[in-house]
Design a protein around this nucleic acid. Structure first.
Lengths: 283, 283
DNA sequence: ATGATTTTGGAATTTTTATTCCAATCTGGC
DNA sequence: GCCAGATTGGAATAAAAATTCCAAAATCAT
């Protein structure tokens, strides 16, 4: 392995920068032996702490690797980047890879006219997978546990969620029925409110995502006033539903264009239902 | 080293900055109602994308939240920080914690206790992902294409699916309504059949999985007899629904115990809806 | 409507951070 | 031990980012 150096154009000696983290590490492994001491220190540090690169300044990294900032800079260039900033950009985007910008991706798909149904399906599958992965970080195990507890002790469980949230509540309704757990699906048929059915010893599962459905908020508020337990399934902490109180279960679902996947919400719902069903058997 | 301004005590503006992400969100929840429009936009964006805060500049975040950088700055101060940098520091320290990958986090959820709700959640998430991956291979692109074509040319689209399939049809109903596509959800309310509404020029999306719902099969058969187009979403080729004819879209959903995930079916449904919506616009 | 008060957008300023440069220091071959 | 080339440290500079400031716009109470 002799080092071939192209002295030619000292200007553009750029051997394309790695475009993925994998490519970066591949290159790093190949190069690490022929790096001088200080640069090797950088390599070792980055290999051991890849996550730090995204959120630190070059000075911090240099200090942590026990090296001068300029040395770290040279390391970045040695790896094919124009400098630290470019390398950091790669590390930052790799993290957000789980949160890609599907909205613009879809727009791109559209303008190319290649929006075949199967391409769209691939998008939704991708988004669904990402949402599911995300679900396990946004849902707090303790909150889930206490939601189950509250629901297991309720006389009757009320299911409240309309429009986009209706698939979630209707699925819950199906699951509870199958397990003989007394649950009422607030269906909104004939615009009749079933809110007055909610008793103190009952519990309510309310589901709504932005833009929030007023009716759901109203019923949830009413339930809280009556002293019923409330389990709120919504998207973010700033959601009006989350602020009513009760146990919050947060699901941030990604969307493709104007439509949100429901995979994560449904998975959370069925988990809740099955856990409650099991818990009630034990009582 | 923090210089705490104490001279101007016009308000209790010197509340200590949140020291954990949880404290931050708690504060955010309490404060969000007080915030004016632009600042609330910041709050919503941060609540929905906490991860982005760690790896973006204030300008990037401001743009994403559709706000001026100075507004975002004010938001940070409103939350008790001296400025954006201090707030970012908090988010950055939290960032490293959640770097472990999907598999690791999943394992962590599982070890919470075998029959705990979170273990079950891990299970459903896993199964959902697998179902989604499977979906890509089981759905035939040509079948999907011709389903879209049939639905795009229909006068009215009828949505038929009960019990476990009802979340799918109700979601379709929501999506079609949003896109102003004429669709009727056969709800089965009061056991009234809406089958007689189906006309020759209409199309029917029928959804049922084992054990198949008789009512769905009946309506699908009737639709076929009348000469309406039929799109069948079901699990296997041997399903009685598939044997009625029409375009088949097969979804093999995995299950956890007695309960099947719905992620794949929902994703297929929304794909169908969006494709049909787009196709009808082009006509 | 009217004026007072809050909120906002955008440019100006300050601070921080990345990058370059070069002299000092190593290293290995003779 | 000396030289040539490679490597390093640290100061100097450039670039980018955060923060402040203030006039314009919006909102509110009267």
């Amino acid at each position: 392995m002799e080092c071939v150096k192209l002295e030619k154009t000292d200007l553009m000696t750029n051997i394309a920068a790695p475009e993925t983290i994998d490519a970066f590490f591949e290159r790093l492994t190949g190069e690490v032996d022929r790096l001088p001491k200080r640069l090797k220190q950088c390599a070792d540090y980055v290999a051991a702490n890849p996550d730090k690169v995204a959120v630190s300044t070059i000075a911090e990294l240099a200090e942590a690797a026990d090296v001068q900032p300029s040395a770290f800079m040279r390391f970045c260039q040695e790896m094919g980047f124009s400098g630290f900033s470019q390398m950091q950009k790669l590390f930052r985007s790799d993290y957000s890879q789980k949160w890609p910008d599907y909205t613009t991706r879809l727009a791109k798909l559209r303008e190319h006219g290649t929006d075949s149904p199967s391409a769209l399906l691939a998008e939704f599958v991708d988004v669904g997978r990402a949402s599911l992965e995300n679900l396990i970080t946004t849902v707090d195990p303790d909150a889930l546990q206490s939601a189950v507890k509250a629901l297991a002790h309720a006389d009757t469980i009320h299911l409240v969620g309309f429009r986009r949230a209706f698939p979630v509540t209707s699925y819950l309704s199906y699951a509870f029925e199958k397990m003989s757990v007394p649950a009422i699906l607030h269906s909104g048929i004939a615009c009749m409110s079933m809110a007055q059915l909610i008793q103190k010893q009952d519990a309510v599962i309310a589901v709504t995502f932005a833009p929030y459905t007023q009716e759901t908020l109203t019923i949830a508020g009413l339930a809280k006033d009556r002293g019923a337990d409330l389990v709120a399934i919504t998207d973010v902490v700033t959601s009006p539903l989350a602020r009513i109180g009760g146990t919050q279960l947060l699901v941030s679902e990604l969307d493709v264009g104007a439509f949100r996947a429901l995979s994560a919400s449904l998975s959370l719902a069925i988990t809740l239902a099955v856990s409650v069903g099991a818990a009630r058997e034990r009582i």
